[in-house]
Amino acid sequence: MFFLGLYDWLPVKILTVALLILITVYLIRKSIKLFFDKTSFLDEKREETLIHFANQVTKVLGLVFFFIYVISPFFDLAKLVTGSVVVAGALALIFQHIIRDYIMGLTYLFERQIHHGDYVIINGNCQGKIEEISMRHLKIRQYDGYLYTVSYSNITELQNGNRGRRRVNESLVLNYRQNPDDAFKVMEEVAETCNEKYGEYLLKDEKGVPVENFKFNHITELNVEFRGHRYSLSGLVNEADIVEAGKKVRYELAKAAHKYELMMAESLSTGD
């Protein structure tokens, strides 16, 4: 009788429900992981992404159910639900940005555009490895070590390297006064140097032949920010080597620009 009376105490009920929710969430997560461990109809990275997303969903649902239980003694939930159409509409307008994040997050996930651990470029200025896929946002570990968080609704452009194959794409933005013929010769030389020195990073086919060597792609953009023209170099490399290969290519470009005194594009504020 003592324990039954103790259970009627509201704080004890809340703690009991919280414990039950935690156990339920744990069992659901464990079951999902066990299911994927015992099956093989999805690739490993896809399974890892779904597990990661399921963990986020179960956490949110657990918090929602707990919140509903806590407020239930103070409100008539039946009347609250039946009379909440106008409120729900108003909340949808207020939180439309958040709702759009959730919808776009589900779209990215189920269209298989992103996977946990992928190397991506977001909106052309943030690149790195996906560390977390939540219901509202992505967390990207950039090459400089900073963790970048971006909501799905703010993603206007997403570039995702295919699993097992990534393309290094580096460039020099040269002043519009730079003679293109001279720049072409330097960029071609850099491409040859990269193939000779960093060929181990290149993706190989079954015969050990590079699928795509480092190559100069000519002028890929004119009048970049009204400062100059972009001369690009690219190569298809192993996914595991994308960061190191990019560093090496950038080094060779910088060294060649200094050696041949190429005219780099300058900010308009310099008054050149």
Score class of each variant (00 low, 15 high):
124 G>W: 04
131 E>S: 02
132 E>S: 04
133 I>H: 10
133 I>M: 14
134 S>N: 04
134 S>P: 05
135 M>A: 14
139 K>V: 02
140 I>A: 01
141 R>S: 03
142 Q>V: 03
146 Y>K: 11
149 T>H: 10
153 S>F: 08
155 I>L: 00
157 E>P: 02
160 N>H: 08
162 N>G: 12
163 R>P: 07
164 G>N: 14
165 R>I: 09
166 R>V: 11
166 R>K: 11
167 R>T: 14
167 R>I: 12
169 N>V: 02
171 S>D: 12
172 L>E: 03
172 L>G: 03
173 V>K: 03
175 N>F: 05
175 N>G: 04
176 Y>M: 06
178 Q>W: 11
181 D>Q: 01
182 D>F: 14
184 F>K: 03
184 F>T: 04
184 F>Y: 03
185 K>Y: 13
187 M>V: 01
191 A>Y: 01
192 E>Y: 06
192 E>M: 10
193 T>G: 08
196 E>H: 14
198 Y>Q: 09
199 G>N: 00
201 Y>S: 08
202 L>M: 01
203 L>N: 02
205 D>H: 14
207 K>F: 02
208 G>W: 07
209 V>Y: 04
210 P>E: 02
216 F>K: 03
218 H>L: 08
218 H>P: 03
220 T>I: 11
222 L>I: 01
223 N>Q: 12
224 V>I: 06
226 F>P: 00
227 R>A: 15
228 G>Q: 08
228 G>P: 01
229 H>D: 15
